[in-house]
């Protein structure tokens, strides 16, 4: 069970795993996530489902190596099995016939944008996609998204591909050119979602984001993933992960993401001392 069928490196430190998971593949919808444990007594890692095939019984997950848990996950090879895999969790993304849709993905957030772009397209929308990353080699799913989208834009911070700048700059170009949108989805690092959704909302575009708070069980048990939405406490795992960007208390969300900063620094320091290479 949970066998890794395929493993690819999409960008430096960004890995795609194709995992045998017939039940999850059968039930998953765009926007939903899984929780996995790589091995042993490891941590529970929530990851959005990037793709899947009910007929073939697999799902794809894409992750960036950021901490001890994802490093352990990156060590697994094709033929290995994940220790634990549960899902699909969370509410599916809103997929309706909105009209002109704008999908913006930043960094590894391009992975969860992918199934949403496809679903919005299948629902009969005109989809404009913008993806951004620091450099061209860090961009993922470029060809796939380009093929799916009616209009496709790339931004890199060093200008190595597409427009030099952030994904937000590419959006501002479109806005300046008078492009109008009926609905936007923004997924990426927390700060990027905060900034970009403020821009889209300001221009009157209803905007959803997908939040990734710290969580344990993913079923509503722990409440660690709580968020302040329109002054109310919501749970990221069962009420989300997708939320209307308009009501989010971003500062609270950003602060809570840093809950274990000290702990993470300690475990990283342990395992990748850079002095050794000097």
């Amino acid at each position: 069970m949970n066998d890794i069928l395929k493993k690819e490196t999409l960008a430096p430190g960004v890995i795609r795993l194709r995992v045998a998971a017939p039940r999850i593949a059968d039930r998953r919808q765009p926007g939903q996530f899984i929780i996995l444990r790589a091995a042993g007594d490891g941590e529970r890692i929530p990851l959005t489902i990037a793709d899947g095939s009910a007929a073939e019984g697999w799902i794809d997950i894409i992750f960036q190596v950021v901490g001890a848990g994802t490093r352990l996950l990156a060590e697994l090879r094709e033929g290995d099995a994940l220790q634990d895999l549960v899902g699909p969790l969370g509410k599916p993304a809103r997929i309706e016939r909105f009209g002109r849709c704008l999908c913006i993905g930043g960094g590894v957030g391009v992975a969860p944008i992918f199934p949403i772009v496809r679903a919005l397209k299948e629902a009969g929308n005109e989809v404009t996609t913008i993806i951004g990353a620091r450099t061209a080699d860090r961009l993922i799913l470029v060809k796939e998204l380009e093929a799916l989208s009616d209009d496709f834009h790339v931004a890199t911070e060093d200008g190595s591909l597409g427009r030099r700048g952030f994904a937000s700059d590419a959006f501002l170009d479109l806005a300046a050119a008078g492009r109008k949108f009926d609905y936007a989805v923004v997924i990426g690092p927390a700060m990027m979602m905060k900034v970009v959704s403020a821009m889209t909302l300001e221009r009157g575009i209803p905007t959803c984001v997908s939040l990734n708070p710290i969580m344990i069980d993913g079923t509503g048990l722990c409440g660690g993933c709580r968020l302040e939405i329109n002054g109310e406490t919501k749970f990221g795992c069962v009420d989300g992960p997708e939320f209307d960007a308009a009501g989010i208390d971003w500062d609270s969300f950003l602060r809570r993401l840093n809950s274990y900063r000290a702990f993470e620094r300690r475990t990283q320091g342990h395992e990748q001392c850079r002095l050794k290479d000097v």
């Binding site: 039940r23 634990d84 549960v86 699909p88 969790l89 079923t219």
Partner: peptide
Amino acid sequence: VTNFVVGRTQ
């Protein structure tokens, strides 16, 4: 069977 959320997995 662990890792099975009734309502989601089935």
